[in-house]
């Protein structure tokens, strides 16, 4: 059930360089069931900017009717959002899309959660829900550099956590796939830049349970405008397609062309 609600800001703070954690209060929290779903955010009323911004849900607290968005201040829209203060409201449409299938990992099995940069946030709620059902979780989180790292301790509270940075200024120097090769697991859940998702998909092509969450420019976010379509892997040049906003953003690896 998709709802449009003006949610009040509980708190907003910068948790890493240009990375903001925004906690909102709203009744639509009760509809947020799948980790990996997103909300479509109107950062300002009027026409500047006109369209909504899709942001993934990082954490859900149903008891307090609060949910957390973590985003990077990267353009005009997110700059406006980052300037909002406690007690102001934000126009939210959601929850949208299909999230990560937690049912694919049984209690006692091990899941590795692989995130890159601003793809890390939805993995936090996913990890929480997996741990709750008795799954062992491991996290491999990649960032550009030390200044961009966030939520490392929070992830550590759920399971072993490996951080990589491109420049080696924190954790292991290199990419997430370098660390993954050292680990054993039953399921891969992944969210991050397309290059990272491609590397994960290629590195684990024969692995049965690999899930990737995609990012794409969106218009409506509800499946009507056909802005965020991608080809399906079994028909890469044909007419069959998936919409990232409603069929995804999470797909099984090999389902769509990255």
């Amino acid at each position: 059930m998709i709802v449009n609600e003006h949610c009040s800001i509980v708190s907003q703070r910068e948790i890493a360089e240009n990375i903001y954690e925004l906690i909102l209060h709203g009744e639509l929290t009760s509809k947020m069931n799948e980790p990996g779903q997103f909300v479509h955010v109107k950062v300002a009323s009027g026409y500047a900017p006109l369209l909504r911004r899709p942001l993934s849900i990082a954490h859900v607290n149903k008891e307090n009717q609060e949910f957390t968005l973590i985003y990077r201040k990267d353009g005009r829209g997110t700059a406006i959002l980052s300037s909002k203060k406690t007690s102001e409201t934000v126009d939210i449409l959601g929850p949208l899309g299909h999230g990560f299938p937690i049912e694919e990992t049984k209690a006692g099995e091990t899941a590795v959660l692989v995130g890159g940069g601003i793809g890390v946030p939805p993995l936090y709620e996913l990890s929480k829900q997996l741990v709750k059902k008795g799954v062992n979780v491991k996290h491999v989180l990649g960032f550009q550099n030390h200044a961009a790292v966030f939520y490392e301790d929070k992830f550590k509270s759920f399971g072993s956590t490996y951080v990589t940075t491109v420049d080696g200024s924190h954790g292991t120097k290199g990419f997430v796939t370098d660390v993954m090769n050292e680990l054993s697991f039953d399921t891969i859940y992944s969210c991050g830049p397309t290059a990272m998702l491609k590397a994960v998909e290629a590195g684990y092509a024969t692995h049965k349970k690999v899930y990737v969450s995609l990012e794409e420019r969106m218009g409506c976010g509800i499946g009507a405008c056909f802005a965020c379509v991608c080809h399906t892997a079994d028909d890469p040049f044909g007419f069959s397609y998936k919409k990232v906003c409603t069929d995804g953003p999470v797909f099984k690896a090999g389902e769509v062309v990255l």
Binding site: Y47, L50, L51, E216, R217, M218, G219, A227, C228, V229
Partner: peptide
Amino acid sequence: TPRVAETAAG
């Protein structure tokens, strides 16, 4: 894709 791009008021 990309198939959409935002503009001023449009």
